[in-house]
Design a protein around this nucleic acid. Structure first.
Lengths: 255, 255
DNA sequence: CAGTGGTCTAGACCACTGT
DNA sequence: CAGTGGTCTAGACCACTGG
C-alpha cells in the first residue's frame, strides 16, 4: 500500500527529472496540483514536503515553489550498508574479515551499547576490486552470536543479519571528519602512513532505540564523497569543533 | 509570529533536554499532547515532525514515539557562515583575505554560477586564534562588487552582504571528502604538505534559486567534525563514489 | 482488541509575494 | 489586490503494535 502523497511525490520527482519542470523553474501551485491529482490540498503539501526534504524544491510563503535540483535521494539502507550502496550504484564490491574478537567493553562503549562485553570486527572492503574502506565495528553483545556465524567474506552484513535474526537498523548518527592513516590503515588500504582518510564514525539503533553497533569507517581519500542539501528551513547537517576538550557535545556518542 | 506547532516543538525539545523524557523513553501519544496543548492532532503532528527531522525522536506506525537523543540543531546560517557558527558555539574567530581577483569563469563555473566573469577570494580563517580553514570562494558577478567593498579582515561575509545588499542565502549543497594539503594549504594552516584536510565544497543560491557562490573550504584535520542523524524514514546524507570517471553524479555541481 | 500513528478530507484564516 | 504558501481545525478511516 503506497500512500497517495508518495505517488504524487514520485510523479513530480519524475517530472523534475525528465525536465518537465526544469531546474530554476516554478512548480505549479498547490491548488493546481490538487486539482490535477484529484486530492485535497493537504495531500499535495505532504507530497511537496517530501521533495523539499530531499532538497529538490524550495519554497517560501507567498511565492511559488522553485525547482532546485534533480537529485534522487538514497535509501537509508544505502547509507548504512556498504554492499547495498555499492550494488545500487553499479559497483563491484567485496569484504573480508581481518580480525574478530570478543572483548570487554571500554567505559564509553559500555554506555553507548549498554553492554560490558562486545564483539569487535575489523573488515576490509573493496569497491571495484580496490580496497577502499577499513571498517572497525563494535557490536553489542546481543547481536554478537549472529555476527560470529557469518562467513568471513560475507558481502552484506546488514542483509545477512536481517535474514538470520530479523534485525532492522532504523536510526543512525554519523560523525564525519578527516584523519591520517595509521600503520594498519595504510597497510590494508595500500596508502602511505599519514595520508588522508575520510572517517565516518557511526552508532546505529533499532526501532526501539536499542543500540546495535558503533563503527569507525575509514575511506581512502578520493574513493567516496558525502553529499547533502540544506536550506534555511531544513538543516540536517551540523558542524562541531573537533577539539574534545572545548565546548559541549550533544549526540549519541556522548552518554 | 511564531507558529503554534513551533512552540509545541520547542516545549517538547526542552522537556527532552531536561530529561523529562529521557533518551529511550516513549513520548506521550498524539492525543495526549493535543489535549495538553489544546490543539488539534494535526498541529501536534507538525510539532513532532520537526523533532523527527532533527533526529530527536523516531516513530513507527502503531507504536509510541521514542526519544532517540537530546539534540541541538544548528541554524542554516550556522552551517553556512563560519562566523555565525563560531560565535554561537562560543569560539573566538577571525578571517583575513589572502588573495582576491576578478577572472574569467571556467567552463564549469560559468554554468554553475551563470556568469562568465567571477570574483575569486582566498581567505584564511582562525578559530580560537589558530588557523583552521582555508576558504577558496568564487562569487557570481552580481555579488562581486559588494564583496569587493568588504574590508580584508571582515569577520562575517554572510552578515556583511546581508547588511549591504540584503543578500539572503537560502539553499546550499555540500560535498564532503578528505584531501591532502597542497603547498599553499600547508603554508597557511601550518601543517605538512600531504597531511589530511577535511574538505567541504559547496554551492549556494538565493530563495529564487539564483547562484551566489561556490566554495572549496578546507579544514585542518581535527578542527571540525560534521555530524548528522538519519533514519529509515529520513536520509538526508548521500554517499557517492569519488572517482569522477565512474557513475553518474546528480547534484548542483553538475550542470 | 484497544491504542497509536499514518493518511486524507474540506474548509477556514492569515502572512507574504509580486504585479 | 489577487494569488500563493503557511497554519490550524475537526473529523474520518486505515495499518500496525503490543498486550
Amino acid at each position: 500500500m503506497v500512500a497517495r502523497y508518495e505517488r504524487i511525490a514520485d510523479a513530480l520527482r519524475e517530472e523534475i527529472l525528465t525536465g518537465a519542470h526544469p531546474v530554476g523553474s516554478q512548480l505549479p501551485s498547490e491548488s493546481d496540483l490538487a486539482g490535477r491529482f484529484g486530492v485535497a490540498r493537504g495531500t499535495v503539501r505532504q507530497a511537496v514536503a517530501v521533495l523539499a526534504v530531499e532538497g529538490l524544491v524550495g519554497s517560501r510563503q507567498g511565492a511559488r515553489r522553485i525547482v532546485l535540483g534533480r537529485a534522487r535521494s538514497q535509501s537509508f539502507a544505502e547509507l548504512h550498508s556498504f554492499a547495498q550502496w555499492a550494488r545500487a550504484n553499479g559497483h563491484r564490491y567485496g569484504g573480508q574479515v581481518i580480525e574478530q574478537r570478543r572483548r570487554a567493553a571500554s567505559a564509553v562503549e559500555s554506555v553507548r551499547l549498554g553492554n560490558d562485553k562486545v564483539l569487535e570486527v575489523l573488515r576490509l572492503r573493496t569497491l571495484d576490486d580496490e580496497p577502499v574502506l577499513v571498517e572497525r565495528t563494535v557490536y553489542a553483545e546481543w547481536v554478537a552470536p549472529a555476527v560470529e556465524r557469518l562467513p568471513a567474506d560475507c558481502e552484506s552484513v546488514t542483509e545477512a543479519l536481517y535474514e538470520s535474526i530479523g534485525l532492522v537498523i532504523a536510526y543512525g548518527e554519523h560523525l564525519i571528519d578527516a584523519v591520517p592513516a595509521g600503520a594498519q590503515d595504510a597497510r590494508l588500504l595500500g596508502v602511505r602512513r599519514g595520508s588522508p582518510l575520510l572517517r565516518q564514525r557511526r552508532i546505529t539503533t533499532t526501532y526501539e532505540g536499542r543500540p546495535v553497533e558503533t563503527s569507525d569507517d575509514r575511506y581512502r581519500a578520493g574513493s567516496v564523497i558525502f553529499s547533502i542539501r540544506n536550506s534555511i528551513g531544513a538543516n540536517p547537517l551540523v558542524r562541531q569543533a573537533g577539539d574534545l576538550r572545548s565546548g559541549r557535545r550533544e549526540h549519541m556518542f556522548d552518554l
